[in-house]
Design a protein around this nucleic acid. Sequence first.
RNA 1: GCACCCGUAGCUCAGUUGGAUAGAGCGUUUGAUUGCGGAUCAAAAGGUCACAGGUUCAAGUCCUGUCGGGUGUACCA
Length: 587
Amino acid sequence: MSIRRRCRANFYILSHGIIPPMQTIKNLLMEALAKIDGTDSQLLELTAATQLAFGDYQTNVAMQHAKKLKKNPRELAQQIVSALPENNILQSAEVAGAGFINLRLYPEVLGRATAALEEDDHLGIPQIGSLQKVVIDYSSPNVAKTMHIAHLRSTIIGDAIKRLHLASGYEVIADNHIGDWGTQFGKLLVAYKTFAKPEDVSEDSIEFLEKLYQSFNLKAETEPELEEQARAELLSLQKKEEPNYSLWKKFIQISLQEFEEVYQRLGVCFDTIHGESFYNDQLQSLVDELKERDLVRESEGAQVAFFESDQYPPCVIQKRDGAFLYATTDLATVRYRINTYKPQRIIYVTDSRQKLHFEQFFSIAHRAGWHCDMQHVMFGLMKFAEGVVMSTRKGAVIPLRDLLDEAENRALQVLEFVEYPEDEKREIARAVGIAAVKYQDLSQNPISDIVFQWDKALNLQGNSAPYLQYAYARVRGIAAKHEEKFPQDTVKDAAIVPKLEIERDLCLHLLQFGAVVSRATESCKPNHLADWLFGAASRFAAFYNQAPILREENQEIRHSRLRLALVFSRCMSKGLNILGMDTLERM
RNA sequence: GCACCCGUAGCUCAGUUGGAUAGAGCGUUUGAUUGCGGAUCAAAAGGUCACAGGUUCAAGUCCUGUCGGGUGUACCA
């Protein structure tokens, strides 16, 4: 496998100082609870109603108190409702079911809150990360190997986690910890120096290096002495002897150029690229420091860390022959990052097979006194339909480039009979194709294994990125037509007054945006945001169908609807951007 | 052997950290005055949430056990 390696906002004040409706309702409920003996306002939870018929928001606080207070839950709920202070917020408060309290806002209140989202610099996203720094370690491809579809997960999920943290106000350091050191370079050097050069590819290309590597593995099966040569070349490289040292640097340069091409297509960028080799000269001091702290000791000739009551198997930090390992580099990396950046949190995005490794070195790092919240965000394996784990050792994988090309081509086919300029079509196909590939990955729980299927990876219909982009493009289309048709009209400060049920529904959904982003950030699960976006787009589609805007003759209603659509488009744009997807004015 | 992850509609997957009648997409079936853009919308059919206990006013969600699938398990990364 060539992938080397690799959290609840409650209430908050928005930047414009407008208090969100949930906070207002919660305050009213707290006042009511205070009038009832024995209630604990800490237990108060307010959530969005699970069904439109139940109102806007609901609380189960009565059921939670009923047993303790030895009261009938419905009666207690009624008591709480009766104790609510006079207000001009709640249109209704009703007891339902086993003791739920269902709450409904006045339409004007709901509309004002929705419109207020636009006034907030962050569209209602709580800035839970302000003054906090987080290092995110993701993508991390291996030098001299083409990026293929299995690299997609770490890169795309990592990039979305980065953007989520930025949107939540964190200072982010995105670090690409590329695999630029290790035994594969010994093999590559042997092949480069002694094998016939592959002729069908350019010598400056990553395919060239990859073919050399593959032919080494093939030959080594029958000629075991090659492995010995590889070890010798590696040793020479480690001593920085020429020409090995220069060749190694050249391999890295070729690889980085190719990676950069893919990253640009994906819209992914890093703040630092500190590969494994960056830490080479820190490894011995690291082992020494761990020895001083009694965290490692000699065992069977190696330097090994052990764990309390054998919670984990032993972890070798330095081999019998003095060489360092994966865990050594990772520990040195943690030490460097904490000393250099002083982050509150470090996040690693890798596949789930590395769980034990991370638990081990997190434990060692904590005991070494390198205090920081370290989190391993793991994702499942990508498999082919046959269920075979992919490997670059023998080739036969789908290069990432091919996947992206295919995605863009399929998107272009949809535009075949559309009369847009050719270059615009290509731009649309690019934005749609890339987003579609990203969405199929980001819309599911990262932990699940995924079975790669072309049709699924490149889906352009239903619950897919183009569906979200299409909803956005429709609003932009309406806004443009509105300017043509009513050039004197301005809706910038128009009041939103949701009258239809679908309008209420859309408003309520938009008001959840900030909390959803927070949840996605803290749990490092971009799929929560993807879900929200799909929910928003499908509500908009229904709204679009039921509530005409430009055809509406009543100006107040027309303005209300258009303003609502515009708030929707702002949230969509922000949300899509957080998932690393581009928006289009038309498609 | 031990540890961890997963098991939800025919298929691919969600499920707001314990809340009301378990949701989408695809596929299947039916419909939408050429529509403010049909990459869309409206609707139907499809479920013993692997199984068995337990905790709770309330369990797909938490605990225990069983079965099935996956991954890992000291000198690879």
